[in-house]
Amino acid sequence: MLRKAFVMTVYPQYYEEYEKRHAELWSAMQEAIKAHGAHSYSIFLHPATGQLFAYLEINDEQLWDALASTEICRQWWAYMAPLMETYANNQPVSIDLKQVFHLSR
């Protein structure tokens, strides 16, 4: 299993809407995330900065990366684009984080 973490940014006036939309995550998007190998996926908000910290556990990096090319993912990005920093194609601007420590049981 691989652990991934990255940061994104949501605009302050949309914190509640961002959370609401994720609470109502489309079933097709949930299925796509799982089909692309995610076992666990969490997003945390730092309210003072608008920074989102995302953490997920996956099976395969290539399988996970393929999610970005699916129609449902592109639709989700377009739906979320007004709420956060994105590239021209609506993909969220995200910065991968380097793991520097891990403790497990």
Rank of each mutant, 00 (worst) to 15 (best):
T9D: 05
N59F: 03
R3V: 15
N59E: 11
Y15W: 13
A54M: 07
S27Q: 13
S40K: 13
T86K: 00
A23M: 13
A66H: 09
E31M: 14
S104F: 07
A48R: 06
L2D: 01
E71K: 12
R105D: 15
Y14E: 01
H102A: 15
S104H: 03
M29R: 14
C73A: 10
L83F: 02
M8P: 02
L103M: 13
A68K: 14
I72M: 10
H102P: 11
V100C: 12
N89W: 00
P47S: 05
E19G: 01
Y87K: 06
H22F: 03
D65P: 12
A78Y: 10
S94V: 04
W26N: 08
S27P: 15
Q13G: 06
S42G: 10
K4A: 08
E61Q: 15
D96Y: 04
E16T: 06
S42H: 12
P47A: 01
A68S: 10
K98M: 15
A68L: 09
P12N: 12
D60W: 14
M1T: 12
Q91I: 01
Y18A: 02
N89D: 14
P12Y: 08
A54R: 00
E61D: 15
E19P: 03
T70C: 02
W76E: 10
A35V: 09
L63P: 08
A35Q: 11
V100L: 13
L67N: 05
G50H: 04
E61L: 07
G37M: 04
L83T: 02
L56S: 06
D96F: 01
V93N: 04
A88P: 02
W26M: 14
E19T: 05
Q75D: 09
A88L: 10
L52W: 00
G37D: 12
L83S: 01
S94A: 13
I95F: 06
R21S: 02
I58N: 03
P92T: 00
V93Y: 03
L97M: 15
A35I: 07
Q75A: 09
M29N: 11
H102N: 11
Y15F: 15
I43H: 05
E31N: 05
D65G: 07
S40A: 11
A66R: 09
Y14A: 10
E24K: 13
I33M: 10
E16C: 07
L63G: 11
Q91D: 03
R74A: 04
V10D: 00
M8F: 01
S27D: 07
L25I: 08
N59Y: 04
A78R: 12
G50P: 02
R105Y: 12
Y79H: 15
Y18L: 03
E85H: 02
M8C: 07
D96M: 03
N59G: 10
S42R: 13
I95Y: 04
A28P: 12
S94P: 00
S104E: 15
T49Q: 07
E24D: 09
Y41W: 15
E85W: 00
R21Q: 11
N89H: 03
